[in-house]
């Protein structure tokens, strides 16, 4: 499951997304992300964070410009090429997106769909190797003992760990996490963020995380990208980002709603 740290680069060149109703989701984006980086994307609601993330795996299509993953343009239509790209890009969602009626193991194996012949997945005849990869992924997030339990019986934090394990089972070069902690309590939030950082360090998987809490962005980010009305307005190190930078990204003063721990506001 290791990453040789030469995979997982992303490059946006003059990328634009205009939704059918005319809303601009991404505006002339030029951005380069190196293999193994841990990038946190911030911006107020509607700034285009999800739009950016979903463009990387082709869930959102560009109106113009280009995105490349490891030097290969992200295909802008459904088909085999797009599936091959998605195979290498794991995604984690705010609402976990698990099949509640199925076991944790079955859910994690969904991450292996693109790796096995179609008939094997269809009849639930997973090769031993793929089951092992799924088990290792569960091990990585520390919930091996839940493998045969129904997903519906897990807590929110455990469900999100299954979501992470499903992404890891893809043996991805890139992980996209769209507000992965927005439906979790503060304690679980920190655990999940730590998991994501640790996995990034251990496996060298390029990780993009959308967050709307500024203190989390500062604490866990390596590099912070700020968006406003679909435009890149900040790109810098998390260690040096100032409160003024955040005010500029948000276009306003920030409040308790923008931080997880209210004490960080003075």
């Amino acid at each position: 499951m290791s990453n040789n740290n030469s995979q997982g680069s992303i490059r946006f060149t003059g990328a634009n997304i205009v939704y059918p109703n005319g809303t601009v989701g991404m505006k002339d984006l030029n951005l380069e992300i190196k293999p193994g980086e841990f990038v946190v994307i911030v911006g107020s609601s509607g700034a285009g964070k999800s739009t950016l993330l979903r463009a990387v795996n082709g869930l959102n299509r560009l109106t113009s410009g280009q995105i490349e993953v490891d030097g290969v343009a992200v295909p802008q239509k459904d088909g085999r090429e797009l599936r091959l790209l998605r195979k290498r890009v794991g995604m984690i969602f705010q609402d976990f997106r698990l099949v509640k009626r199925l076991t944790v193991m079955s859910n994690v194996l969904i991450g292996r769909l693109a790796h096995v012949p179609g008939w094997r997945a269809m009849f639930n005849l997973w090769p031993a190797h793929d089951k092992e990869v799924a088990m290792k992924a569960l091990e990585r997030v520390g919930i091996t003992e839940k493998a045969w339990i129904k997903a519906s019986q897990l807590s929110g934090g455990q469900q999100q760990r299954v979501g992470i394990a499903r992404a890891l089972a893809q043996e991805p070069a890139i992980i996209l996490a769209d507000e992965p902690v927005a439906s979790l309590d503060p304690v679980t939030t920190h655990q999940i963020m730590q998991d994501l950082v640790r996995i990034n360090r251990e496996l060298g998987i390029t990780t993009l995380v959308n967050l709307h809490f500024l203190d989390l962005a500062r604490k866990y980010g390596q590099r912070i990208i700020g968006l406003r009305f679909g435009e890149l307005v900040y790109d810098g190190s998390a260690a040096t980002v100032t409160d003024d930078d955040f005010r500029n990204i948000y276009g306003r003063d920030f409040t308790e709603d923008d931080v997880l721990d209210e004490d960080v506001i003075d």
């Binding site: 599936r83 790209l85 893809q170």
Partner: peptide
């Protein structure tokens, strides 16, 4: 449609999106 989209995002085919 969240779950079908998640299957698609893993590189699943249309049939797999329907099935899983």
């Amino acid at each position: 449609m969240g779950m079908p989209e998640a299957v698609r995002a893993c590189g699943g085919t249309w049939l797999q999106m329907v099935q899983f």
